[in-house]
Simulated assay, not measured.
Amino acid sequence: MVKKKFLSDNYGITLMEVLVTVVILGIIAAIAVPSIKGLISKTEADVSEANRLELRRMYKEGRL
């Protein structure tokens, strides 16, 4: 019967694997951060416009 060895020869991860992972995460972050900042700016502008319209409506109704 053949005994299977899963991790007997591999005691951890190599420095190269860590570096590749860090580089991949850095690339993903470099792509995602500007997109998220753009979405936040657009959302803030949309909320400001919605608030302005709501205040205008309330002023016309005499509730403000």
Rank of each mutant, 00 (worst) to 15 (best):
6 F>L: 13
33 V>Y: 04
12 G>D: 03
19 L>F: 12
57 R>T: 12
1 M>F: 10
35 S>N: 14
7 L>N: 11
45 A>P: 03
21 T>F: 08
33 V>E: 06
16 M>A: 15
52 R>M: 02
58 M>E: 15
24 I>Q: 11
20 V>E: 13
47 V>A: 00
38 G>P: 04
48 S>L: 04
64 L>S: 02
51 N>L: 06
54 E>D: 14
60 K>L: 15
57 R>H: 07
40 I>A: 04
27 I>N: 03
11 Y>V: 12
29 A>L: 12
27 I>A: 10
12 G>A: 03
29 A>M: 08
23 V>A: 13
17 E>Y: 04
58 M>Y: 13
19 L>P: 02
31 I>Y: 04
8 S>T: 10
55 L>D: 15
46 D>M: 02
63 R>I: 02
23 V>M: 10
50 A>W: 01
60 K>Q: 15
45 A>F: 03
51 N>E: 07
22 V>N: 07
57 R>F: 08
53 L>N: 03
60 K>H: 10
61 E>K: 09
44 E>H: 08
36 I>Q: 13
17 E>R: 09
6 F>W: 09
31 I>F: 05
44 E>F: 08
35 S>W: 11
15 L>T: 14
27 I>G: 06
9 D>M: 04
49 E>R: 01
28 I>K: 06
26 G>F: 02
53 L>D: 01
8 S>K: 11
34 P>C: 05
35 S>A: 14
37 K>M: 14
30 A>S: 04
1 M>E: 14
32 A>M: 05
21 T>N: 13
29 A>V: 08
53 L>A: 05
64 L>Q: 03
2 V>E: 13
62 G>W: 00
43 T>W: 13
56 R>S: 15
57 R>S: 09
61 E>H: 04
30 A>E: 01
32 A>W: 01
2 V>L: 13
59 Y>A: 15
15 L>H: 07
34 P>H: 07
6 F>V: 14
39 L>T: 07
9 D>S: 10
42 K>G: 06
60 K>A: 12
54 E>Q: 15
8 S>D: 11
42 K>S: 12
12 G>K: 02
35 S>I: 15
39 L>C: 07
42 K>M: 06
17 E>W: 05
13 I>Q: 11
38 G>Y: 03
41 S>F: 02
11 Y>Q: 11
11 Y>M: 12
25 L>Q: 11
